[in-house]
Nucleic acid binder design. Structure first.
Length: 413
RNA sequence: GUGGACGUAGCUCAAUGGUAGAGCCCCGGCUUGUGAUGCCGGUGGUUGGGGGUUCGAGUCCCCUCGUCCACCCCA
């Protein structure tokens, strides 16, 4: 093992070829699906002013209070590595002067940073694919966003995912509910665990999804947000559910879904799996109608979600297919240069080619085998004289003498 | 941040406190124009790192780094 100085930082991992292939499958599925919903990619900074997240996510949240990589740079500015994507997207939306440009449907993919204790599926630098729709207010768009997320995950062929939805209310109805909940929790606080007792003051809604079983049983008759929605939130939530039904997107109601980030309201949802231990949330998001305004823009409804690329990649089937179309084997030093030109010709036809470097035939074939090349182009003195190539199909062992054009034809079909 | 498990060759793992090994992988050879099997040979380790106990530490003790698991929280 390498010494400390040669290792990557804790919780920050390298993307090696096998894993990156999986990442790319996830990203490609996202691009394909999002394009059918007319979403446009945005590329946003990894570094942002620390203040942006303090004001959007909330100062009291764990993310801001203890998980951010923030520091003072040489110009005495307090900057940080972004812990999530939404705040930066809103900042860019405002800074780009797009508040009167009509609905914006954005997606992005890139690294996020949180200084947490690492686990499987939870890294300090991790990748998210995020979506943010600005200027859309209705339940129709909510249903479409959820349907798009569903379509994206369906394209990845990940099974045993469950969509859970909830409504978090709005600034009109949530405070009232919060008071009712706190009153309820205070009355039964002796039966709740230690952390829940702390949560009553800090974030009472979090108590609802406590994992301690004794807490859950004590909370069986706890008041739930969905029963205390105002009329507008109620009809919005109904509209969402009707839209999901119409689109045949399967979901379950989960009144215990809460959000750690302050800016969410109304629709909240999560796609979860039970195959990743405690890190089962694979894609999650919700509506954040107040965020644009709170960051200095005009009142602008918006909804979005983020998917964890590493978590999704872990759920993908193994799908190892060699990407090498043909390996070029050169027999004899005198044909080396000629074999290089033939390899170049194959590449011009768009094929993926590995030149085995000449030398012992056995070595070169072993290399071709190891590269999982579908074909080997054998080039020796005879082939050079006749201007042909001996093409061997590595799966069947069949070998034919062909011209370069015929080789391209044979491999491409 | 809290609690727990674990770090030996590239990988998977052995080694009553007494010379660090095996399998797989990799490289080479088995008369040099044909790959997965077979046979022969080879490379490869400050046992994660640093201290301590001991005649002697992979093994026991302390510290540290890292991975994994749970909590916290979250994608």
């Amino acid at each position: 093992m390498a010494g400390k100085s040669l290792q990557s930082i804790r919780g920050i991992h390298d993307g090696l070829p096998d894993e990156v292939r999986r990442f790319q499958r996830v990203e490609q599925a996202a691009r394909n699906t999002f394009a059918t919903y007319a979403c446009s990619e945005v590329r946003l900074p990894v570094l942002e002013p620390t203040e942006l997240f303090v004001r959007s996510i909330g100062e009291e949240t764990d993310i801001v209070s203890k998980e951010m990589y923030s520091f003072i740079d040489q110009g005495n500015d307090n900057i940080c590595l972004r812990p999530e994507g939404t705040a930066g997207a809103v900042r860019a939306y405002l800074q780009g002067g797009l508040t009167r440009a009509g609905a914006q449907r954005w997606f992005y993919a890139g690294p996020m940073f949180r200084r947490e204790r690492p686990q499987k599926g939870r890294l300090r630098q991790f990748q998210q694919i995020g979506v943010e729709w600005f200027g859309v207010s209705g339940p129709v768009e909510d249903a479409e966003v959820l349907a798009m997320a569903h379509a994206f995950l369906t394209e990845l062929a990940i099974s045993d995912l469950r969509l859970e939805v909830n409504s978090l209310g709005c600034k009109a109805c949530r405070p009232t509910y919060r008071d009712i909940l706190v009153e309820y929790l205070e009355a039964g606080k002796e039966q709740l665990c230690e952390t829940c007792n702390e949560r009553i003051a800090k974030n009472p809604m979090r108590v609802l999804d406590c994992k301690v079983t004794s807490c859950q049983s004590a909370l069986s008759d706890a008041p739930e947000m969905v029963d205390h929605l105002c009329d507008l939130c109620e009809s919005h939530f109904d509209g969402l559910k009707q839209g999901l039904d119409a689109l045949a997107v399967p979901y379950v109601m989960n009144a215990r879904i809460v959000r750690g980030l302050d800016y969410y309201n109304r629709t909240a949802f999560e796609f979860v799996t039970d195959k990743l231990g405690a890190q089962g949330t694979v894609l999650a998001g919700g509506r954040y109608d107040g965020l644009v305004e709170s960051l200095g823009g005009p009142a602008t409804p918006a909804i979005g979600f983020a998917a964890g690329v590493e978590r999704l990649a872990m759920l993908l089937d193994d799908n190892e297919e060699g990407c090498v179309d043909v390996a070029v084997v050169a027999l004899g030093a005198e044909v080396l240069n000629y074999s290089l030109t033939q390899a170049a010709g194959l590449r011009e036809a768009g094929l993926s080619v590995v030149h085995c470097g000449g030398g012992a035939a056995k070595r070169q074939f072993r290399m071709a085998d190891r590269e999982s090349a579908r074909f080997v182009a054998v080039i020796g003195g005879d082939e050079m004289e006749s201007g042909k190539i001996a093409l061997k199909n590595m799966a069947s062992g069949e070998q034919n003498i062909l011209s370069l054009d015929e080789v391209v034809q044979a491999i491409s079909t």
